[in-house]
Design a protein around this nucleic acid. Structure first.
Lengths: 349, 349
DNA sequence: GTCAAGCGTGAAACCGCTCCCGTACGTGAA
DNA sequence: TTCACGTACGGGAGCGGTTTCACGCTTGAC
């Protein structure tokens, strides 16, 4: 009992050589008659080339590795949706190799992917800390790499990011129009190594945009109203405690957070103390994670095209693979302000 | 310039045959001296077997396919964390092949995985509708399959599920202890095909447990307080409208939902109408998605060991692969009640 | 001393596909 | 007619591992 047809069997039935069958499948020289005959046999035998053998023969892995840091687990779906769409739409579809979703991604795992040539390409998404040596070794191994990152201090890799400055500007204009003048910004921190964190570049850009837009109307955010904490719900809680201690007349009437998790932490904490949102304070987040629309009041936030970014990242990796060249392009994606109920006109004093 | 060492080069340097190198790597007959010599050469040349070649030679794909339906994108992280832990912990680590995260998973994609032998194993997670023919064809192709599903009407595949009845009982006891006597249950629906839905088995089991626990105290849930809607935020919103219309004295003092998304939809809707939770109504969800702890008040819910379930699913697939036999085991995982602020004592009337 | 059993090793087949190269044929130009 | 060239196809090497098989050596039981 033969378990499965292989290319040789197809060739026998069609009375041609393996080479010809291969050409029919992959599109090479083949006369119409032969092509028709072979195609018919393929149909009849329900033949499908064995992917592993094909990859082996082509000297590739047929996989793209995907690395992400995602403690809250809110990102994955969006980015993956894009990646998946891109990969499956191509008949030469490469699979998403695997992913790392621990709090801090494990460089050892990724290194082994490179060493064992498990992947042809790599996509790093929102990893606070990129190991430069890791990316370099990937490049040396001929592995195309795309980074979803605000940091563009890399050579030879494609970089994708959202227009954070534009996002900040949009938020600034929006809050100004609502009458807000005392605005605070709570940015996030990116991981530098296991224990150290630094001001996140994403957040810095968002703050820059925010400041720019407000400055155009003569409004300035005082240094005392700018703070950078870890990208985590707890940071929102912590900032809420500070905010609650401020005198009513001096407390910011609007707080812009570096991500939704912090914003939601802030909201629930002040709500638990009886503060009404947006009557007493307006809140803006970033990212539009699923939770943002599930709370009451819904969180006004900035939506990024994460799905589109994931899709493009894969396209870049595939293209870099085909051309056997590594590109160092930078792609910036537009964002959109999603207005919900957590923002309102500034209260009359 | 040779790009990379292969097994033949290692063999040359160590003055042994390829076979011996292979045996040293995979643990076969080899004298201590030879083993040491070969190991040293491997170190020196930084040799790592090429995964694709190995898989090809072993006649396998080296991949496990992962299929999930996840519109809200809240599940993936939890299950994947477990899968990833299991796969990377094994040196024979298989990669997560790919995943489908559209609203309704695409059977065509999975079929092509099977046809092209892209995967050795398949894990289906929380897919409302399993295509029986798909699973059967996978079995015939010798692909080990694990289902994360409450439905055990399948043969030859491993099934994993949470103890939904136990979960329902725990919720029932808890609410009874808080003094609740008028309790409603809003279950979910699973997809049967593109347009049809049926009462979800998960929800039915949860309701069974809930009813059992309450019945032991002489409390009965009237039929009119049981409803099955689609597993979606909107269903929570819809139920909230119905609830708001009920007379205070007749409205349930506690509502148990089939999942967190519906519970959160209910909460935000009644909150927007000024209803205080849990003072006026207690709310219980299921699943403990990230959002549950981000809202105010925090949602009391039931946590499932999704990470553990994912991990076990992979173990089962791997084991089925090694033994070349398909097992039909059923695994039930314990759940835990997570009490937050959305539940409280029944209000004095 | 003989024989069987087991260990340690090398040679070579094998997995299924791609692709290089050689050949045969037909066509058009010199 | 001859030659060059492009098209169509077959033969077979090659990809890098694993595994089977054969063979030599050592050991122990009789």
């Amino acid at each position: 009992m033969k378990s499965r047809a292989d290319i040789a069997e197809v060739a026998r039935h069609a009375r041609v050589s393996k080479s010809t069958v291969s050409r029919v499948i992959n599109g090479g020289y083949a006369s119409p008659e032969v092509r028709a005959r072979v195609t018919k046999v393929i149909q009849k035998l329900a033949y499908t080339p064995w992917t592993t053998a094909r990859n082996f023969s082509l000297g590739r892995a047929g996989c793209v590795g995907f690395v992400i840091e995602d403690t809250q687990g809110q990102w994955i779906a969006q980015i993956l949706a894009g990646i998946e769409a891109e990969l499956t739409s191509k008949h030469i579809s490469l699979l998403v190799g695997s992913l790392v979703i621990r709090e801090h991604y494990d460089a050892t795992t990724v290194t082994s992917w490179v060493r064992e040539r498990r992947v042809d390409g790599l996509v790093f998404a929102r990893c606070g800390k990129f190991e430069r040596s890791l990316i370099d070794s990937a490049r040396r191994a001929g592995i195309a790499t795309a980074l979803i990152s605000p940091d563009d201090d890399f050579t030879g890799v494609d970089i994708l990011r959202s227009d954070n400055v534009g996002a900040g500007r949009a938020v600034g204009q929006y809050l100004f129009d609502l009458g807000h003048r005392r605005i605070a910004f709570v940015g996030g921190q990116a991981r530098v190594n296991a224990t150290t964190f630094r001001e996140s570049i994403d957040s810095r850009h968002r703050l820059d945009g925010l400041s720019q837009a407000l400055a155009e109307h003569g409004v300035k955010i005082p240094e005392s109203s700018i703070v950078f904490l870890r990208y985590h719900v707890d940071s929102g809680v912590e900032y809420a405690r500070r905010w609650l201690k401020l005198a009513r007349a001096r407390a910011p009437t609007a707080v812009v957070f570096g991500n939704d998790a912090m914003a939601l932490g802030f909201m629930r904490t002040v709500q638990s103390q009886g503060v009404r949102i947006p009557d007493e304070v307006s809140v803006v987040g970033f990212d539009d994670i699923p939770s943002a629309s599930l709370v009451w009041p819904g969180l006004t936030t900035v939506r990024q095209e994460m799905s589109k970014i994931g899709e493009t990242a894969c396209q870049l990796v595939r293209r870099a693979l085909e051309r056997k060249s590594v590109g160092g392009s930078v792609h910036q994606f537009p964002v959109s302000l999603v207005v919900r109920e957590s923002t309102g006109r500034v209260p009359n004093e």
